[in-house]
């Protein structure tokens, strides 16, 4: 990488390209344009749309961990669940304001992420996978047994949510929920995008690629991992709170391995480490699930399974990975 002086012009081009990658491209407006267009064209599907946006935020938080920091987890639902239960328990006990509910959920999930991250991030590989899985399983058992607060296996019922800003009431058709989730997702995306373009975000990629070298150049690897784990957990908590508030229901499934696994699948289908994988994988999976699983769950499991096998073996890197390869292009950032 030590270029002699003769290569100087080339290096300048490289550096320019590197500096430009933070600039917004017109393609990045596409998901938002599509979301707004769908509001007017699919009026009967606003409730589903809201769920999709909240789940995209959840997948985005997972992408920060897996795609950028290289922390592979099978227990991300832990933080989604903590956020959902935090927002739900507040709303069921007389505190009905939604926005502060999101903040509390982010705090609760962030604290859970910090506390568990400080312990489990000492490990790596399969051990880390197991530790994250076990943390989620422990929390699920806790929610299952602590029925007086969480409602146990019946789920948390009796939530009441005030209108957003005191004006926009959550309606039966999900019109408010659609805009509400979309707005929160937009803010979450902005935050995530800024984060990964920042020096901190670049250092995460460095840690993913080679932790030993990052340590050698003086980066506090362990501390940075815990920080991104906490941030990601908080984002997942917001996503959980969004779903809790817009569906007025929280169940044990929010903390389950199934939830973590399904999310991982959606993200891999879209493409990991490219920021927009979540925006492709989540709608694809959830719309297909909505169409087919309601008709025949057996059929759904079988075909999505076949699709996943095919995807894993032949279309590596998910949809965005395939597109990038076709264009002769870049590995993930």
């Amino acid at each position: 990488m030590t270029a002699p002086a003769a290569d100087a012009p080339d290096r300048k081009a490289d550096i320019d390209a590197f500096a430009r990658r933070h600039k917004f491209r017109w393609t990045e407006a596409l998901p938002w344009a599509a979301a707004i267009a769908c509001y007017f064209t699919f009026e009967n599907y606003h409730a589903l749309g809201a769920q999709i946006f909240a789940t995209i935020l959840f997948a985005l938080s997972l992408d920060l961990l897996i795609g950028y920091a290289g922390i592979i987890t099978l227990g991300h639902a832990a933080f989604f669940g903590v956020g959902a239960y935090a927002a739900g328990i507040m709303a069921a006990n007389g505190f009905h304001e939604p926005l502060s509910g999101l903040v509390i959920a982010a705090l609760a999930a962030g604290i859970a992420g910090f506390a568990s991250g400080a312990i489990v991030l000492r490990t790596s590989g399969l051990t880390l996978l197991m530790q994250t899985l076990v943390v989620a399983a422990l929390l699920q058992e806790l929610a299952n047994k602590w029925t007086s607060v969480t409602g146990g296996s019946d789920g948390l019922l009796g939530m009441k949510i005030d209108p957003v800003f005191g004006v926009f009431r959550f309606d039966l058709f999900g019109n408010t929920a659609y805009i509400y989730c979309l707005a929160v997702l937009f803010l979450g995306w902005l935050a995530a995008r800024n984060l990964i373009c920042s020096p901190f975000g670049r250092s995460l990629t460095g840690i993913r690629e080679n932790a030993a070298r990052m340590r050698a150049i003086g980066a506090p690897v362990e501390r940075r991992k815990i920080i991104i784990y906490t941030i990601s957990a908080a984002l997942a908590g917001v996503s959980g709170a969004l779903i809790a508030q817009t569906t007025a229901l929280v169940g044990l499934g929010a903390l389950s391995l199934g939830r973590s696994g399904e999310l991982l699948i959606m993200l891999i289908i879209g493409g990991i480490g490219r920021l927009y994988g979540a925006f492709i994988g989540v709608p694809l999976y959830m719309i297909a699930q909505d169409r087919f699983a309601a008709v025949d769950p057996v059929f759904w499991y079988f075909w999505i399974g076949l699709f996943m096998i095919f995807d894993g073996v032949f279309a590596r890197g998910g949809a965005l990975g395939v597109i990038a390869r076709r264009r002769g292009g870049s590995p993930p950032q």
């Binding site: 897996i66 592979i72 696994g261 991982l264 699948i265 891999i268 289908i269 990991i272 057996v298 059929f299 759904w300 499991y301 079988f302 075909w303 999505i304 399974g305 076949l306 699709f307 996943m308 096998i309 095919f310 995807d311 894993g312 073996v313 590596r316 890197g317």
Partner: peptide
Amino acid sequence: LYRRLYGGDELDQVLMTMGLIFVSVGGATF
């Protein structure tokens, strides 16, 4: 299937084997 992913990306392995689980669930129910 499996042989194609030896030494490959862990996440593709996860996707493929989760897919096999789903197929087994659907197939056994059917």
